[in-house]
Design a protein around this nucleic acid. Structure first.
Lengths: 94, 94
DNA sequence: TCACGATGTCTTCGTACGACGACATTTGGT
DNA sequence: ACCAAATGTCGTCGTACGAAGACATCGTGA
């Protein structure tokens, strides 16, 4: 499963957790985080801590792999509007 | 490349950046972060924001894939010492 | 050797994190 | 329909984040 955003990741986590038949509390205990944090992660929280995320994925038995593309992403255009940033600000995270 | 920890990720980022011949400043600009943040990430910062990490990986042309293992990680034992946590506390992050 | 760019480190500042407890709402089983 | 568990949300609190600027050090080429 390819992951490009925090929302993607949240979906994967939730799907995997349900497949294992775990509650959010159970996963939180195994990952060493709070239940509320799990709620936020599954909801696609973009500002979650990397370390906690890796712990959660490990607890779920999910392996993270990085593969290099031939060409990296293009430089962000300085002249036009950054829709990504605008959306992010509008949504106030989550 | 498999990634299990923040330190792993930092190494991958640094290697990929150098392979592309970019400076930390250049990568930071492309990812929309500060140069100091890139320094910390490459150093294995575990408390970095997930969203910024994904942006950096995307800027580098690195794709993130999650694959499910047959069995998830075992529950953390309540009786013994959590060496992971002890090490983390000792190292005071970074 | 000198100069300059790249990298690492420190401080300040505003902001949001994550844990926790409490409460509201939803879901699933009988 | 009922009840209990699971999930979502809200506040508070201590802590650390990430941006920015300044400075020290390192590496490399002239």
């Amino acid at each position: 499963m390819r992951v490009a955003s925090a929302v993607d990741l949240g979906g994967v986590v939730r799907a995997r957790r349900k497949r294992l038949g775990w509650t959010q509390q159970e996963l939180a205990d195994r990952a060493g985080t709070s239940r509320q944090w799990m709620v936020a992660l599954e909801g696609g929280k973009g500002r979650a801590e990397l370390g906690l995320v890796l712990k959660a994925l490990n607890a779920l038995g999910l392996t993270v792999d990085l593969t290099a593309q031939d060409a990296p992403a293009p430089r962000p255009s300085g002249g036009s509007v950054d829709l990504d940033a605008l959306l992010a600000a509008y949504r106030r995270d989550r």
